[in-house]
Amino acid sequence: MPEGLSNTLREHRQHRKMTQAQLAEAVSVSRKTINTIENGVFTPSTILALKLARVFDCTVEDLFILE
């Protein structure tokens, strides 16, 4: 993850009681991809970020924070 970029994906997912596999299926990616985003290893594309925001019914800025 680039310096200063963090995310609240895990918190949002756990709040919705979703597993990584369920979230992965909802946005058509693999479970590993969700895991790497949550751990800050992989930065998703704008399209994927928007898809994730749509699943959680929030904005991209709610999920990804530039510190």
Binding site: E25, S28, V29, S30, K32, T33, P44
Partner: peptide, 11 residues
Amino acid sequence: NPALMDERMRA
């Protein structure tokens, strides 16, 4: 199944 070859794997 495009999910098997997603953007992380392409990267």
